[in-house]
Nucleic acid binder design. Structure first.
Length: 552
RNA sequence: UGGGUUAUGGUGUAACGGUAGCACAACAGAUUUUGAUUCUGUUUGUCUAGGUUCGAACCCUGGUAACCCAACCA
């Protein structure tokens, strides 16, 4: 435990700031726009911002960046808060950019008074035309030379609702020939006669991102405002406003967003998947949304561990989905309750077992003794997994085959004697002999077997629907492939089966995580009812036999 | 053809002028009443060409590649 984990570049900056006495504590913020559901990308940002203030003195605010009323809604505010709490983080203050609309308006007036902002009456197209291109400088607009008094009057009238949407804007007066396109007199206020989910109809002008985000940071005394790489060009503007307004100097730092293989992470693409019904909704268990992953059975701990292992840096990346799965299995292996369920049933009949007899066997609930045991009923007719029998055994096969002996987990060793087939050649049942003295826990039979398989008693089993989920896309990076990313959707991402489950699973609750022995980790779906039980497969177990088969 | 950012095994991330390390993945073996877990071992890397230096992934110069920037979105 003595080894020290090296710091990421943000931790280094913070440690330097703290050591230099620039700050005695830090303040970060997680600033979602309430216009959609949170996904794995947000989880990275959440773990980063909250993680930093868990590690160093200070706190993190939750701030909703609600400056565009037409996209935003209270529904999203609630789901975002739920997701953050589920991940296990606590914010210091719940804040909204819209709380600062009055202050931002005053800031705008200040800029006008300093001759650093003007009211524009050109249309969006005209503004774009004068803006130039990355290789050609822009040109000054006629409105640029308006007097302070005229700007003040027009801006007041904008606020008072005298103008229609799109007819006037407020722009910062910087430099139309600047190499940074964002510095070419950026728009800072626009007219939108729209209802805001918090301020209602009080305002008909709303600040743009660049005139809201940094200002909010400053008002909250955010010391380290962390965002993704695409905001690098905004930093110059961010600093310019703070300098001209002479307000608290928050600083912006950027890191590379985390991309996961075999999925998409942009809100736009996720929205398409939902709206075009490629998935059942935002919380479909195949979605990389926090709500989808929660429904799938991911644990908060597995996501936090993953974010921690991946680290933080400034270069483009696509992280192997298998790392996330590793973190998931690692957590679930330590916590999931062991149970048995047969997903693709084949009847097994014990020839020498008494008709109508039931034995109550004990089986371990968890990875160690602390979890205790539970009772599992055993009888003459059982269900086993169809794939655990081979008519003609393969090399290195150690499950059932004619003449082969196998242990049934927590029960007896059985020898397969014969099997039945229907006209189509499908095996319909296997007949076995059991060895009474091989009973689990008191085995005196002296028989050694290589294989142990799971099973459920046919007379005691319950039925359940099991949703077997697989990756949503067939390729590592659907976003960068030729053509539409939706062309690469995995057609087999959901496979629904009717399974036989052991009786104890009838008591499952939404917060439980189970390992179905040898089959994977599963959890109850939120739509499960007593009449119709539904489980979701969270992730499979690693399977060395599959590799063996692939080798031929 | 402007400006900005980034280049370390298959993937992600360390090494702060001094032994290229860690994790995932892959491969091989041991243990196993889950072909799981656990344990052991193996393979694979500094974008490129020069330069400075006793010594360069790191500093300098020139290339190359990828990503971002011309929304009244954030």
């Amino acid at each position: 435990m003595s080894e020290e984990k090296s710091l990421n570049f943000l931790e280094e900056i913070i440690e330097t700031d703290l050591a230099d006495g620039k700050y005695t504590s830090i303040v970060t913020r997680f600033p979602p726009e309430p216009n959609g559901y949170l996904h794995m990308g947000h989880a990275t940002s959440i773990c980063l911002n909250f993680g930093l203030t868990n590690k160093y003195p200070g706190y993190t605010n939750l701030r909703f960046d609600d400056t565009n009323p037409v996209a935003e809604d209270t529904e999203f505010v609630e789901s975002i808060k739920e997701d953050i709490k589920w991940l296990g983080f606590e914010w210091k203050h719940e804040l909204y950019a819209s709380d600062y609309f009055d202050t931002m308006y005053e800031y705008a007036v200040t800029l006008i008074n300093k001759g650093l902002a003007y009211v524009e009456d050109a249309t969006a197209e005209e503004i774009a035309k004068l803006k130039g291109t990355p290789t050609e400088p822009g040109k000054d607009s006629a409105a640029r030379s308006r007097s302070v008094a005229e700007n003040l009057d027009l801006f007041t009238r904008m606020k008072n609702g005298e103008f229609a949407d799109g007819t006037k804007t407020l722009r910062a007066k910087i430099d139309m020939a600047h190499t940074n396109m964002l510095m070419r007199d950026p728009l800072i206020y626009r007219i939108k006669h729209a209802h805001h989910h918090r301020t209602g109809d009080k305002w008909c002008i709303y600040p743009m991102y660049d005139f809201a985000h940094g200002q909010s940071d400053s008002i909250e005394n955010i010391t380290h405002s962390i965002c993704t790489l695409e905001f690098i060009p905004h930093r110059e503007l961010y600093d310019w406003f703070i300098e001209k307004l002479e307000i608290y100097p928050s600083h912006q730092y950027e890191f590379a967003r985390r991309n996961l293989s075999y999925t998409v992470m942009s809100k736009r693409k996720l929205k398409q998947l939902v709206e075009e019904k490629h998935v059942a909704g935002w919380d479909d268990p195949r979605m990389p949304t926090i709500s989808g992953m929660r429904r799938r059975g991911f644990t908060p701990q597995s996501i936090r561990t993953f974010c921690d292992k991946v680290g933080i840096a400034k270069r483009e990346n696509i992280i192997d989905f298998s790392l996330l799965e590793f973190c998931l299995r690692e957590d679930l292996n330590n916590t999931a309750l062991r149970t048995m369920a047969v997903l693709d049933p084949l009847k097994l009949i014990i020839t020498n077992y008494e008709d109508g007899k039931t034995e109550e066997l004990q089986s371990e609930n968890g990875p160690d003794e602390a979890y205790g045991t539970r009772t599992v009923p055993f009888s003459k007719e059982l269900w086993i997994e169809r794939e655990d029998f081979m008519e003609v055994p393969a090399k290195k096969w150690f499950r059932f085959a004619p003449g082969a002996s196998v242990r049934l987990k927590s029960a007896y060793i059985l020898r397969c004697d014969t099997f039945d087939k229907d006209e189509s050649g499908k095996v319909t049942a296997i007949h076995c002999t059991y060895f009474p003295e091989s009973k689990s826990g008191s085995d005196t039979s002296g028989i050694a077997v290589k294989g142990t398989i799971h099973w459920v008693s046919a007379t005691h089993a319950a039925m359940a629907q099991v949703n077997m989920y697989d990756r949503l896309f067939k390729v590592e990076n659907p976003g960068s492939e030729e053509g539409d990313f939706k062309d690469y959707i995995n057609p087999d991402s959901l496979h629904i089966v009717q399974a036989f489950i052991e009786p104890s699973l009838l008591k499952a609750t939404l917060s439980d995580h189970f390992q179905f022995l040898r089959k994977g980790y599963f959890c109850l779906d939120k739509e499960s009812t007593a009449e119709k039980i539904i489980f979701n497969r969270t992730v499979t177990l690693k399977d060395a036999w599959v590799k063996e088969v692939k080798k031929g």
